[in-house]
Amino acid sequence: MALAKRRFPLPDSQTIPGQTVAVHGEGHNPALLHHFAEQQQQRDAASLGMWIFLATEVMFFGGLFCAYLIYRLKYFAEFSAASKTLALSLGATNTAVLICSSLTVVLAVYAAQHAKRSMLLGNLILTIILGFVFLGIKAVEYNEKFEKHHVPGPSFQFNEVNIPGHPGQYANPSHAQIFFALYFVMTGLHALHMIIGIGIFVWLLTAAWKGRFTPQYNTPVEIGGLYWHFVDIIWIYLFPLLYLIDRHP
């Protein structure tokens, strides 16, 4: 069983098929997958994979931002009138909620790296709670849109709304509808990412509860944190673009 204590990678001369079983013996670190040479390489590979996934997410949201940009330039008057109907205080509160959740996420990663169990569990729970607070506030906003008939579709109403800065001119409802369509698709997709993020953090919480994370192995917390921060960054852009068009009196 001398091979069992040997670290990867084995020199070519020793990778004989018959001996591979011995390699997975008692000397092998259970947190290290077979195909990685060492812990750092495994961590870097996981992190790089997450960053490439986030790159695809940026392009995914990028298409929506591009559509937003085109229609904002074309129908600026209606975009500004429609943006003023959004609840600024709720949007700003949600921004603060997400920024606070990013802090708890980064504290959770720190706690996992420094074997602080109660700090890790506490911050994971706080993150999940803040995620639900965000979704709750979003639900209140969506509810208001339904009540005001600002949801795109047959019942959409945006009649006799003044264009800011142009007294006597009314916004074209069909152009305003494009703003609300973009609003619902962008914030809806963002909310979907939040729901997935909460799911990831519930999973992280159960794994942390079982004591799976150590200073040597905490990649899931780090990777889950990267996802959460990305969702935060998307909101950091969505908030001024949707809520703060032409707000000055």
Partner: peptide, 13 residues
């Protein structure tokens, strides 16, 4: 917004 996103990326991520 870009400054905020940069801070999140550099320090939190």
């Amino acid at each position: 917004a870009s400054c905020k996103a940069l801070l999140v990326a550099l320090f939190f991520m």
